Computed example of a mutant assay.
Amino acid sequence: MRMPVFRAGLLVALVAAMTPATGALADSTETAAPAVILRSTGPVTGLPLPRFVSLKTSEGNARRGPGLDHRIDWVFTRPGMPLRITAEYEHWRRVEDAEGAGGWVHYSLLSGNRTVLVIEDLAAIHARPDPRSDVVARAEIGVVAAILECLPDWCRISREGQRGWMAKTSIWGVGADETID
């Protein structure tokens, strides 16, 4: 039986994950975003900061500040892509991707459904959370998968009907010490 290999797509996923909205330089008259103090919980939701979410839609504008009047810096184009929320302001969330790029996104574009991004090429997906267990599949760098649960060093993921365990060192979208039931 052939082992499945999950592919990121035709484009390199980390490049395709977001595309520049414009090549223009920022206007020096643009208003700066209001100061947001990072704390252990968000001032709007009371949820932990930072925390991971995923992109709900196939397109999400990341703006320079929290509001429609701010310039769009990036357009996220991968539904399900994991993002880390680092700040909150009214209906806006400051997010960043695995490379640290991002901006302010309206909360309606985000989902609490947890996903991970594979950051190691041909990362092994194991039958059990043990490096000596059978490898049931492999995933290319840039693959997005759903999180089913996480232990201190491993996460059980699902992609295209296949399930298995990946070492946290192979994925981005979950905290190093985070567990998920």
Rank of each mutant, 00 (worst) to 15 (best):
I141T: 15
L117I: 08
S54G: 12
I72E: 12
D130F: 04
T19N: 15
E140Q: 08
T57A: 07
G9N: 14
Y89W: 01
G103S: 02
R71P: 07
W154H: 04
G65F: 02
F6M: 07
R2H: 11
A137Y: 08
E96Y: 03
V75H: 00
L25P: 02
E160H: 15
W74N: 00
M81A: 13
E178I: 04
M1T: 14
P50N: 09
P129G: 05
L151Y: 06
S170A: 14
V135N: 05
V5E: 10
W74K: 05
I119P: 00
N61T: 03
L25A: 11
T19V: 13
C150A: 15
D97G: 03
A101I: 03
T29L: 02
T179W: 04
C155T: 00
W165L: 03
P82V: 01
A62E: 14
P152Q: 11
R163V: 07
W104S: 04
A33E: 13
P34Q: 11
I37C: 07
I85E: 06
T57I: 10
P20F: 01
G65Y: 14
Q162N: 12
S158T: 07
W165Q: 08
R132S: 10
T77A: 12
T169W: 11
G173N: 02
S111G: 04
H70Y: 15
A35C: 12
T115S: 07
P43G: 04
E178Y: 08
P50R: 01
G103D: 00
W104I: 11
T22A: 06
A101K: 01
L68F: 07
T29F: 09
